[in-house]
């Protein structure tokens, strides 16, 4: 009887695994795997007129290796770099304040960061349109105070695009910074001060290096979505600064100037732009692990790059690493939210 159940079970074991796995696996193959492969395939089958072509061709890539696209890419990188810089600069004191607060105060402050984080981007744009509108409140005040010229507009300017970028993506920087400051041992600052370091020395040589992983992951979590964001330039930029990198992808998918191969090729470069900072970050983590003699670096929670690394290397067998939780998961929804402690002190 016992023997029979044993053999029965190993057969049932495979069946159970398949029953549990197949629904989501099939969905993922159909809705994630196949479409992704199709995009890669599409990038290589453009014909000279820019439509669907026959066979393998690099026409789409020839099309985008031009000075024009290089200019757009550089402009986009400038915007993303500025957005990341300002988000971290402004986000750091906020993250610090939240990490140093306690109890209900911390809960409230986190909630106040999560709400703009989860609010749809179009709502943010609508709200800012009122503020920066030509007849809006802010422009009238600035004109009244003689701070700007009568003719100077606020909406449809590079300034408006950058403001919106920082506004929308600041929570993406605050959350990983908070998670990393929360784990920082502030006794290190006290010891540094006791040993004669000035406040700024303690800040630059103890605090910032101590939270550098949080800073890197904040930079990346801002960099990636800004690079792929086309709505803000399109709706806020106005003539002159309404075309950044992702807007070109959008344009080639719209009915007027549809060119799927070029859109696909541009998207593949977007993926590459996302992978480059990730690889730099990985190299940094490996170096850090080597220099500190750790076999395993504790990943920052809320770090999309870390998730990717786990996916590629499958280091942790097949279990999703809880330390590598996604940002959106960390942002208030995980019942076992690791953003505060857990693996940090292990």
């Amino acid at each position: 009887m016992k023997q029979k159940r044993g053999t029965d079970r190993s057969g049932a074991f495979r069946l159970n695994e398949l029953l549990l796995t197949l629904p989501s696996l099939l969905m993922l193959i159909v809705l994630v795997g196949i479409p992704t492969i199709i995009v890669v395939f599409n990038a290589f089958c453009a014909d000279s007129r820019g439509g669907w072509g026959e066979g393998f061709s690099l026409a789409a890539f020839r099309e985008i290796f031009t000075v024009y696209y290089a200019g757009i890419t550089l402009e986009t990188i400038l915007y993303t770099a500025l957005t990341s810089f300002f988000s971290i600069l402004i986000g750091l004191p906020v993250a610090y304040t939240i990490a140093r607060s306690r109890g209900r105060m911390r809960l409230l402050l986190l909630l106040l960061v999560f709400i703009p984080f989860w609010t749809n981007m179009v709502v943010h744009i609508a709200a800012w349109k009122i503020v920066l509108h030509p007849d809006g409140f802010l422009r009238n005040v600035l004109v009244f105070m003689n701070l700007i010229d009568e003719k100077q507009l606020l909406w449809n300017t590079p300034f408006a695009v950058l403001t919106l970028f920082v506004y929308v993506f600041l929570p993406f920087a605050i959350i990983p910074l908070y998670a990393s400051i929360e784990k920082f041992d502030f006794r290190l600052i006290e010891s540094a001060r006791d040993l004669g370091a000035t406040a700024s020395q303690a800040f630059f040589r103890v605090f910032l290096p101590g939270i550098r992983n949080g800073i890197y992951s904040a930079a990346m979590l801002v960099f990636v979505p800004v690079f792929g964001c086309y709505i803000i330039p399109q709706l806020v930029g106005g003539p002159g600064c309404d075309v950044l990198y992702a807007n070109k992808i959008y344009q080639f998918t719209s009915t007027q100037s549809r060119n799927i191969p070029i859109a696909a090729a541009l998207s593949l470069f977007l993926l590459l732009a996302m992978l480059v900072p990730w690889i730099i970050y990985r190299i940094h983590l490996i170096r850090q692990a080597n220099s500190e003699g750790n076999s395993r670096v504790v990943p920052e929670p809320g770090n999309a790059a870390e998730i990717h690394s786990a996916a590629v290397s499958c280091q942790n067998g097949t279990k999703l690493d809880t330390g590598a939780e996604s940002l959106k998961n960390a942002a208030g929804f995980s019942p076992a939210s690791d953003m505060t402690e857990k693996e940090g002190n292990s």
């Binding site: 989501s24 990717h308 996916a311």
Partner: peptide, 11 residues
């Protein structure tokens, strides 16, 4: 499962 978490939304 990881692909949708890391791939840019526009892609």
């Amino acid at each position: 499962l990881y692909i949708p978490l890391v791939v840019p939304e526009i892609l």
